[in-house]
Write a protein that binds this DNA or RNA. Structure first.
Lengths: 208, 208
DNA sequence: TGGTCTCTCCACCTTTTGGCTGATACCGGT
DNA sequence: ACCGGTATCAGCCAAAAGGTGGAGAGACCA
């Protein structure tokens, strides 16, 4: 059996060494490189061509994890990337999967889970922590059930092409509140601009 | 027969006096007020409650004609408004009709045409200059045939929620060019934001 | 040849959005 | 009595979008 080359990407040195030690216990897994930022990750991936990239989403400065995943996959569409992060926000999961992540592990995952994810990734299998999987599943089934009534109301008006100012007037709330609601809506829909939110909402049937 | 009260709105004094003299020759038409801006128009309309408002679309400072029409109609939904302007751009026509204009005359219209428009307006009839009518008709029949191929291409990508930068990259043109195309698209669709353009485009069937 | 249309680009300026942080308040369930 | 979710608002800052006006190149047609 071939050994699986792994690239670790995390801005915390301690996490990297911990992972390295952990993965080192497995005969068929070898850490071939480390990176502390998205930029470094790209360089390292080009240099070492690892079979699997284990990536933290939250990175201090520069390119964030999502962007790094996108670019990794752009450079090599077959690159297996596993997200290994502390948080399990709905939006992050969707965006990571969207960007092309093969797996999604929380940092409190059991060692066996991590090994399984790495081995699965090289075979094209998607492995994710149980809580993550259930969230993703729920999200895919009824994506907007998670919007609060107020948010849905706003989204509906948004599809009419109203500006923040107009939305505020229409709903008798301040522009600041409108912005807050919008930020929440974007996060839940997994988009980052009002344009994309409108496109998503309208195509999501019924809202036309 | 009752005399028809008319409010003139135009930022050019000469145009107002010319119109006033012209309308004065008709026994059944009386100019009851004049305004040089959108704001003044609203005040004057509240004060004089004219049967018909003759409004120039292009007004130097402050509220533009379209907005003035909207507000006039909001205050009194039965207010008859006739647009009396120099230009006959497609977008202006659509937007004015949308805002609730009863008629649309070009400034080179024959006196009889103007009289007819005023008399027609109080009866709820829509009167417009021939060239304007034909444009409007064409626009209503196939609203996007007027988009150039390149513009249609851009609009299609726009509905995917792309940013100007992304659009530029995708089409191999500069962001400046993207903005130019967008401005043209907005004008042709009769909207003023990308959000509204997306909503319009997607709902316009087929583009989903 | 001259006019019109389309596509391309630029600079300058204003307004709108979006990201981030933090705060208050009400409700409902543990 | 405390906590999580919802809804409300503020201020600051950076990025994106929109408005205006101008300009050149190529196509096409009268």
């Amino acid at each position: 059996m071939n050994t699986i080359s792994v690239l670790l990407v995390d801005d915390h040195t301690v996490v990297r060494s911990g992972l390295k030690a952990l993965l080192g216990t497995q005969g068929d897994i070898a850490v071939v490189g480390e990176a502390a930022s998205g930029e470094e990750a790209l360089d390292a991936a080009h240099e070492h061509t690892p079979a699997v990239v284990l990536m933290d989403l939250a990175m201090g400065a520069g390119m964030d994890g999502i962007e790094a995943i996108k670019q990794l996959r752009q450079w090599n569409p077959k690159q297996a990337v596993i997200v290994f992060t502390t948080y399990d926000s709905d939006a992050d999961i969707v965006r990571a999967v969207d960007a092309g992540a093969m797996g999604y592990l929380l940092k409190d995952a059991a060692p066996e889970e991590i090994f399984a994810a790495v081995r699965g990734a090289v075979q094209g299998k998607s492995v994710m922590s149980a809580p993550v999987a259930s969230r993703l599943f729920q999200q895919l089934r009824n994506p907007d059930e998670i919007l609060t009534p107020r948010e849905a109301e706003l989204l509906s008006l948004l599809t009419q092409g109203l500006s923040n100012r107009d939305l505020g007037k229409r709903l008798f709330i301040s522009e600041a509140t409108v912005k807050t609601h919008l930020a929440h809506i974007y996060a839940k829909l997994g988009v980052e601009t009002r344009a994309a939110a409108i496109a998503t909402a309208i195509r999501r049937e019924g809202m036309r």
